[in-house]
Design a protein around this nucleic acid. Structure first.
Lengths: 121, 121
DNA sequence: CTCTATGCAAAAACTTTGCAGGGAT
DNA sequence: ATCCCTGCAAAGTTTTTGCATAGAG
């Protein structure tokens, strides 16, 4: 998915900050926290939060809180569940598609917390 | 489960604050946020956070973040999944036991986010 | 009596808002 | 030219920490 296309579809302006943020998410292919992003991109925190907020409203990104109590953002693509290790705080994207039918509720995301194979030894 | 027993097993001191917190969780039988607790109990926030933190370390409570971006705490009992509605922010404890086997990872909690039946209309 | 918990206040961490100037369309 | 976006600074929220006193075992 082209960044230009994403931005234009939502009728947003393509600024340098937005391009950098989206490029980072597309390249990294994994959930990133504010700190992760700050490491790669220098940008005012207000700009960061405002853009992330807009991206979430427009469903370009979505977020969840991990075990380290930090918020992680991810580009919205193929829906998938996340496994979060309570020992090493690692986040694993699970390939399995989400097809649970829960009491007629519509399921969007699944967050699974536990201990990963590595930490189980 | 008696509060006295819980506290003694973890070799903690049973103070008025701790008794109030645990009584509230046992009575309410659902996840509670800091604000929920503050409504029912008057207690310094430092005391609250220190006790909650200790309870989590001792696995008396566990927590997760809901859709309203508030942290919800729950007494550790029979493991169960939670359904969080992204529309009305309601939290539903699911009866289904957690027996997923995920890539040899040990699963503790599952958080399912979506739209509940009521909000789907 | 000893050691931990509490309350208050201050600080740290995280996120949002106001405003003036800059940039995209 | 217009309207949205950005950076800076300030304020708002949420959570943590230091310290002296109070309370549990």
């Amino acid at each position: 998915m082209q960044i230009e296309t994403i931005i234009q579809e939502k009728k947003l302006k393509l600024t340098a900050a937005r391009k950098e943020i989206l490029e980072l998410f597309i390249d990294s292919q994994k959930p990133l926290s504010y700190d992760d992003i700050k490491e790669s991109i220098s940008m005012d925190k207000a700009t960061f939060y405002r853009n992330i907020s807009k991206f979430e409203t427009e469903s370009i990104l979505h977020s969840f809180e991990s075990n380290d109590k930090k918020r992680y953002y991810e580009i919205t693509g193929t829906p998938h569940a996340h496994f979060i290790c309570k020992e090493c705080n690692s986040i694993e994207c699970l390939e399995e598609s989400i097809n649970l039918k829960i009491k007629n509720h519509t399921v969007h995301d699944i967050l699974i917390k536990g201990i990963c194979q590595k930490c189980m030894g």
